[in-house]
Amino acid sequence: MTEKVKITSGHWVLVAALLASAFACFLLIEPYVNSIVMAFILSLLMFPIHEWIESKLPQHKNLVSFLSCVVLTFIIVIPLLFVFAAIVQQGTVFSQNVYYWVTHGGIQEVFAHPWVVKGLSVVNTYLPFEEIQPQEIAQRVAQFATAFGSNIVGFSAKILGDATNFLMSFFLMLFVLFFLLRDHDKIISAMRHILPLSRSQEDKLLNEVEKVAKSAVMGSFLTAIAQGLAGGFGMWLAGFPGLFWGTMMGFASFIPVVGTALIWIPATIYLFITGDTTWAIFLLVWSVAIVGSIDNLLRPLLMQGSAGMNTLMIFFSLLGGLHLFGLIGLIYGPIIFAVTMVLFNIYEEEFSDFLSKQDNS
């Protein structure tokens, strides 16, 4: 028979002091929470590789963790550097081509297209807007294109600053990852000891967090990579800078509802207007059939680790996470939902007799 613990006023003081100090610690690490969370999630993904390296060097925990971090660096950073350099090069060429096209009468050719003329006529006749003048739009676009050259210098500086911040966050994440991999067993044991739950409840909670964290990363980021590759290939075949627009499609895939259509719809319209009807039809079919099907098939397949969550819950966890936390919210949202569901299950098990009695009353 288990002995009941008598709660005294001293215990409440201790709990209050513990909560206050924990909150103070959170304020100290708050600027680095994203790096710590990403280190935790990457430690789950890297652990099979880490275990394989550890089996070869069982007596060298520090070296094994260091080698695991080196492997991760080569997997992530080195390809990113090459991709980033290519994106900057293609983006610069594309901006120069746009500037040349606008300043050499390209926008006037667009407004002279029969479809555009007819469309503007319908808009000006039936819709309750002020009359749209093609000359005013062309003038504004030309002004924007003229200013674009100077703006791109500031944009490049911003990209450089963001890249510097990314590297700093990445190395901080590696530092945390090193200790998470090295002391994995100690950390899990400490968490189990502190949580006031039974072993089966702890297993359920930790297993669900691990599954959802993995599936959120796989579902969101691998889907973005796949859509970026497929979309970039289609854009390249249609005559656009493939790597640049493929990367833009990868980022656009994180936007709920709209997704990659934010990129390929304007590109398709541009091809139709400029007379490349065959390539416009190709890009339209390719984007809907191939790029769109990746999101519809691959994301649910990769996120099936969230077994307790249906499609609607996954959608709102992603949407809400993105709104509250930004891009990292694509991971935070599903984890928060999953932990809440596990706690509800534990609550249901603990109070099953009471809940059954209430149902029958």
Rank of each mutant, 00 (worst) to 15 (best):
T260E: 03
T247P: 03
T260R: 02
E210H: 13
G234S: 06
D203A: 06
I269E: 10
K214M: 12
M248F: 07
Q304W: 09
G292S: 08
A216C: 12
M248H: 02
S220F: 13
T223D: 06
T223N: 13
Y270I: 01
W236N: 06
G246R: 00
G305R: 09
E202F: 09
A261Q: 08
I290L: 08
G228Q: 07
V212G: 02
L195S: 11
I225Y: 08
L237H: 09
E202H: 15
L237S: 11
V288H: 11
F240H: 01
I290G: 04
I281H: 04
V291N: 02
V258I: 14
A216G: 07
P256R: 04
A224V: 05
F282S: 08
L243M: 09
R199A: 15
L301R: 15
L298C: 12
I263D: 00
A280W: 01
M303S: 11
S200F: 10
I265G: 03
W286I: 00
G219S: 08
I294H: 04
I225R: 06
T278W: 03
P300F: 14
G275Q: 13
G259L: 02
S287F: 14
P241H: 06
L284G: 04
I294V: 14
A213D: 07
P266H: 14
M248Y: 06
W279E: 08
G239H: 07
E208H: 08
M248V: 07
W286C: 02
V217I: 12
E210W: 12
V212H: 09
L301G: 04
L297R: 07
A224C: 15
L298Q: 10
V291G: 07
A216Q: 09
A280H: 04
V285S: 05
L302D: 07
T274W: 04
F240E: 00
T274R: 11
L302N: 02
G305N: 10
G219V: 03
G275D: 01
L302H: 07
I225Q: 12
I194M: 10
L206P: 02
W264A: 02
A230E: 05
S200V: 05
G292F: 13
Q201R: 06
W286T: 05
E208S: 08
W236D: 10
L284Q: 06
W264E: 00
G305P: 04
F244P: 00
L205C: 00
P300Q: 08
Q201D: 11
V209N: 03
A230W: 02
T268K: 01
F221I: 13
L206G: 06
A289T: 04
Q201L: 02
F240C: 03
G259Y: 05
S293H: 12
L298T: 11
T277Q: 08
S220K: 14
T277D: 12
I281D: 01
F272H: 01
G259W: 03
L237D: 05
G231P: 00
F254E: 05
F240K: 00
Q201A: 13
M218F: 09
H193G: 01
E208M: 05
A261K: 11
G292L: 07
K204W: 07
K214E: 09
A252R: 04
I194Q: 10
T277A: 15
L229A: 14
A289N: 10
G228E: 06
I294S: 04
V288R: 04
I294L: 13
G234D: 03
A226R: 10
N296G: 13
I273M: 09
T278M: 10
F221L: 15
D276P: 00
L271F: 03
K204V: 05
T277L: 08
I263M: 06
R192C: 12
T260D: 10
